[in-house]
């Protein structure tokens, strides 16, 4: 039986009727048509589906859309403002922090959350903070360098 829900995603209200079993990730991709959020494993390991739920990084494959009724969600599409890259996007670009790009949205959101909580992390803290996301292309070198390059800089 479907339920009516309403979420705010990147500041935009999205309403839909969904089955309770529909994951938040599928809701974001299919109902909100924001396909930047990726599905890499659908069992909570790879981190590709990471989004912010009321400001905190979560795996959207492990939450049902009905659970997020009324919540504020931020996805990768919400990072750039007025056509300007967020400093993390710019840093990922400059540090070759992506190759195939599939894990990138998840890494950006995890990095964003990490810096929100700890604006000036050490390299070890960056590595630990991002250890819930898997990249198969970069060996994490560019990603860690990118986050390091913006650590300590103001919003």
């Amino acid at each position: 039986m479907k339920r009516a829900i309403a979420l705010t995603i990147n500041g935009v209200r999205v309403e839909a009727e969904v089955e309770p079993r529909k994951t938040l990730a599928d809701f974001i991709r299919e109902d909100a048509e924001l396909t930047g959020t990726k599905l890499g494993c659908e069992h909570g390991v790879c981190g590709a589906c990471t989004v912010l739920l009321n400001g905190e990084a979560v795996r959207s494959c492990l939450i049902f859309a009905v659970q997020a009724d009324g919540a504020e969600i931020m996805t990768v599409e919400g990072l750039a403002q007025n056509g300007q890259f967020h400093k993390l996007q710019q840093a990922f670009w400059e540090n070759h922090a992506l190759q195939c790009g599939f894990c990138t949205p998840g890494f950006l959101m995890s990095s964003y959350a990490l810096l929100q909580e700890n604006p000036n992390p050490t390299e070890d803290e960056i590595r630990e903070g991002l250890s819930g996301n898997i990249c198969r292309c970069t060996g994490y070198q560019g990603i860690v360098a990118a986050v390091k390059s913006v650590a300590g800089s103001a919003e």
Partner: peptide
């Protein structure tokens, strides 16, 4: 335990 996104939830 796990990683930040797991512990957040």
């Amino acid at each position: 335990i796990g990683h930040p996104a797991v512990r957040n939830r």
